[in-house]
Amino acid sequence: MAKIAYRDAVRDAMAEEMTRDSRVFLIGEEVAQYNGAYKCSKGLLDKFGPDRIIDSPISEAGFAGLCIGAAMYGLRPIAEFMTFSFSFVAFDQIVNNAAQIRYMSGGQIKIPMVFRGNSGGGHQIGATHSHAPENIYATFPGLKVVVPAFAADAKGLLKSAIRDDNPVLVIENEALYGRESEVPEGEYLTPIGKANILQDGVDLTIVTHGRSCWTVLEANQELLKMGIRAEIIDLRSIKPLDWPTVFASVRKTHRLVCVDETKPFCGVSSQVAAEVSRACFDHLDAPVLRVTSVEAPMPFSSALEDECIPNVARIIEAVKEVVA
């Protein structure tokens, strides 16, 4: 398997699906002539032309709504948010229209579209630009939410999202765009709703997703040296979430640490902890611990910011407490 950068995997997914289906188009800020603020659409304007690779003015509500209307009519739009932090400008369109029109129309309408873009903190861009919103969007029935951590899934999940008949949010991460990882040759899809076990283990289960997968794998080097063999699960998909894989692992290891970049209050880890405590109550040998972002807006200074998102030290500390 060849190693490619995450951003190139995103681009390849869009290019393959646009070649396959003329109803697919991309719109967003700087996606065409600029080649994408994070270069995820590099070369696509040349390949597909301005009718299908469309630069939007800075109007998130406008172009998100445009995509929803076009999807209602049968097109398969991809709306790129330069960052998902800006998706809040389009919040009404996403949660009232994309998520609910199918239901409110009694099933008359499908909304086959993708919202995708960068998310997360760690880049000293301040509190307004550093949101990890997957838990927020996952609370709305009607939406699907996926968070690829590796190039293979960035491509495979995005291709699945484009082909899905529902609105799917594909939440990427700035820190990952330049990272290279292995991608299968040829045509493939990563199924939405299926977690991936990154490492088999027996001592505890670590449930994580997105950028935190990389942090967990880094911490894992230390854990292995300490003789702790964790089963590491990359959720990949937040909504729907692959509960059978999570529960089976916890029933095997009897211990769970959740690691993710959403906030601690009503975050993804909160949901995992709640469901596991119900479904695996008799199997747990220790309280479920969570390593998340902290209960504060994201500060600018790197000395502070590094402490605000899950890091290796906090993960190891939690694991040691759970296996003690």
């Binding site: 709504g65 445009l66 995509c67 209307g69 076009a70 008359q108």
Partner: peptide, 27 residues
């Protein structure tokens, strides 16, 4: 809603449908 006759709602949030109408016309 009556999609069969191109009646696309019926929307509750004031102004929210103006972007959807744009999208229908775009399509």
């Amino acid at each position: 809603f009556n999609v069969e006759k191109q009646m696309w709602g019926g929307h509750g949030i004031v102004g929210g449908q103006t972007a959807l109408g744009l999208g229908l016309a775009f399509a």
